[in-house]
Simulated scan of single mutants.
Amino acid sequence: MRTIRNIYEAEYRPIADLKTYSPMPTANLRMIDPFLFLNHHGPQKYPPGNRGLPFGPHPHRGMETVTFILDGDIAHKDSGGNKSVIESGGVQWMTAGSGLIHSEVSSEKFLKEGGDLEILQLWVNLPAKLKMTDPFYKGLQKGEIPQVSFDDGKVTAQVISGSLSDRRGAFETLSEIHLSTLFFKSGGVFSTRVPKSHNILCYVIRGEIRINGENIHSLKLVEFNNDDEQLRIEALADSVVLFGHSEPFNEPVVARGPFVMNTVEEINQAYEDFQNGKMGRPA
C-alpha cells in the first residue's frame, strides 16, 4: 500500500461573504506537482437577492483551472468568446495557456433566488513547452460526465480526465492528468493502482475516510510517498473526495498572482502583455 507522507488541514480564508478553505498552497505545503492550488468555497446557503460569487474579470497564463460545481452554479465568460452556466454536479476545464481573461460569477437565477453553494477550484500546471498554447474552455453538466461504480455501488466516481477503471474521462487534456470526484456511502471501499512515479492529489471534501489506518476528516489534504502502486480508501461516513494523480513535471515554478510560469522574466512579460491588451478584452 502507498504510505502517507503528511496530512494537511485547509486554512480558512474567506473572500468577502464567501466561505473559503485553502488546502494548497499553505505555509506547510507549496504544491503537489503538477497540482498547484486548491480552493474550497462553501458549503453555504445564499439568501434571495444575494451578490453571488465575487470572481469578476481577471487574467490567467501558463496553467489550467478545473472547477467542480458541487452545489449552486457558475456563469462563465471569457475573452475567447466562451460563455456557459454550469450547474450542480458539472465541471469546467479552462486552459489559460498564452493568456485570457475570464469571469466566474453566479447566474441571474441564483442571484435572484439564492440557494446552496459549494465549489472547488483546482489549478493544474502546464509544462514549459505548453505554457503558451492556445487558450481553451469547455463546461459540462453532470449528465455529460462519465461515471463508474465500485464496491457494489457503494462508491461512485465522476471521471473528469485521464482514466479510471478503463473509463476515459470527460475532458481530453494536454498532459496526462487523471482527475475524479469520488462519492462514498458509509463503509464503501475504493481500491486502485497508481504508477509509483505519479504524485497523488487526495482531498476530503465531506465526511471521513481511512487510508493505511489513518482516519482523515473533511477539509484535509493527504500527501503520499511514491513507494507503492496500490491505494485503498475506506469511507467511515458518507463522503466526497477529490482524487487525482499525474507524473510530476519537475520544472521550475514561478507563480505571481494569476500567472504561473517558469521564470521571473516570463511573469514580468505576462503582466506586460496583459496591460497591453494581448490577452483580450475583459469578459
Rank of each mutant, 00 (worst) to 15 (best):
E9S: 15
T192V: 09
K131S: 05
R281W: 09
P54D: 11
E266H: 04
S98H: 10
H58N: 12
H198N: 15
I160L: 03
L29V: 02
N50W: 07
P258I: 05
L126D: 04
E118N: 10
A237P: 00
L117Y: 05
F110S: 12
D273V: 02
A128C: 03
H58I: 14
V148K: 03
I15M: 10
I4D: 13
G42Q: 08
P47I: 05
M132P: 00
I69S: 07
D273P: 05
L18K: 07
Y271T: 11
P282D: 04
S106N: 13
N28D: 14
G56D: 10
A96E: 12
D166M: 06
P258F: 04
P252Q: 06
M132C: 00
K138S: 03
D273R: 14
P248S: 05
L100Y: 08
I233G: 00
V155L: 01
M24I: 14
K142Q: 06
G62Q: 08
K83L: 10
R256K: 13
P135H: 02
E176S: 10
G89I: 13
M261T: 10
F136Q: 06
N226K: 09
G169M: 12
L182R: 04
G99C: 12
E251R: 04
E108Y: 08
K112A: 15
H76P: 13
E87N: 15
A235R: 06
R210V: 12
R167G: 02
I119E: 07
R281H: 11
K77L: 11
V189P: 02
T173K: 02
L38H: 06
I267Y: 10
S84L: 09
N250R: 12
G99V: 08
K77Y: 11
G90T: 15
D73G: 11
K185P: 03
L221N: 05
R61V: 14
K142G: 01
L38K: 06
E144V: 00
T263H: 11
S165W: 02
A96N: 12
G213H: 00
P25E: 09
I233Y: 00
S175N: 11
K138R: 14
W123P: 03
A255P: 01
K154M: 07
G277S: 07
Q141L: 04
S84Y: 06
M63D: 08
G143K: 07
P135T: 03
R232G: 00
R168W: 02
G97T: 09
R167Q: 14
I119L: 13
V91I: 15
S98Y: 07
N225V: 04
M1E: 13
T67I: 14
E272G: 02
E118Q: 15
N250K: 10
T26S: 15
G97F: 09
V264T: 13
Q230C: 00
L174I: 14
L140I: 01
L174T: 13
V159S: 05
M279F: 15
K131G: 05
D273Y: 07
F110L: 14
V159T: 03
L38T: 05
M261N: 02
A16S: 15
W123M: 04
M63W: 08
S175P: 01
N6M: 08
S84R: 12
A157S: 04
P195K: 10
G139S: 02
P252H: 03
P25W: 11
G90N: 14
P135E: 01
V194S: 03
V253N: 12
G49Y: 09
V241E: 01
I205S: 01
